[in-house]
Amino acid sequence: MRNIITIIVRLTLSCLIAAFVIGLCFVLTSKAKKHNEHVNEEKVIYSLLGYKGDAHPPESLKLSVLYRYVVSDPHGKSIGYLVPTGQGETTAFSFIRLDLDGNLIDQKQVAVGAEDAVEQEGRDKAIQAALGPGAELTYADKTIIVTENGNRISYLVTGKFPGFKTFVSVMLALKPDFSVRGLAILEQEEDPGLGAEIEKDYFKNQFIGKSFETLKTLDVVKEPIPEEYLKALESRLQKEEAAKIREQFKDHAIYALTGATISSRSVTNGISGTVKKFAYRLNILDKVIKDQKIVVPF
């Protein structure tokens, strides 16, 4: 009996010590983790916009983030966008609700600070408070609109679609006419050496420069990449020369990766679908914002 008690006491004690160590570590690292995630995301965004390494983005460059939600309430489903409002430094946020045909339902002020809006938890809470009870929120995705001196220069769109094995998540930089400016693969778990090559320049750079019209019907061909195009894609050529070759292949289908046609095809279809959906939604939102004369920073 005494034996059992000693065992229990010692086991509890060691559990407590372990919990203390783990808890301490959690407290110390959780902040750094969030910070690093944020820094990482910013790095991806700026490199997509062409500010790599030491090149600092100019002050006039501004990122406005739109968060899209699907709202379900007793009347049915609607789409909601959390948009920053006002010119210059944004402090106010509005939640614009559209019905499924793209007509405005209502627009509500959301009391949330710019810092809290970045974190999903605080954002959801603030929107829920603005909408009142009865409405159920589902976070869908976020879009970043990049402006320079008030002119839109780029859209950053995230997309997630099934690849060959699991999901592939990407971030696309689009020009205002929805042609592709850059592509970054954020997450993928394809086979190394085969499907994982979608991360390589010679595959993902093929999307750069594809116009919206081309993207809509973009196909994948099982042919080897022509040598000069490969060089241009891997940036092994002079800038002017590379640009010329890229121009030549601008409307060409995507060359599939060797041994990973399905991965190539799912990425191509996924990107095409993401851009199509985004263009459709943005046009609707822009029209509403214009009609309602909502002042937005983008």
Partner: peptide, 24 residues
């Protein structure tokens, strides 16, 4: 059980540290 607990604790620690500082 004590061994397992010790190892699990240190694994959790290194897991959190790596996730925070070397995410890639």
């Amino acid at each position: 059980p004590t061994y397992t607990l010790t190892i699990a604790t240190w694994v959790t620690v290194i897991d959190m540290v790596l996730a925070a500082y070397l995410p890639e």
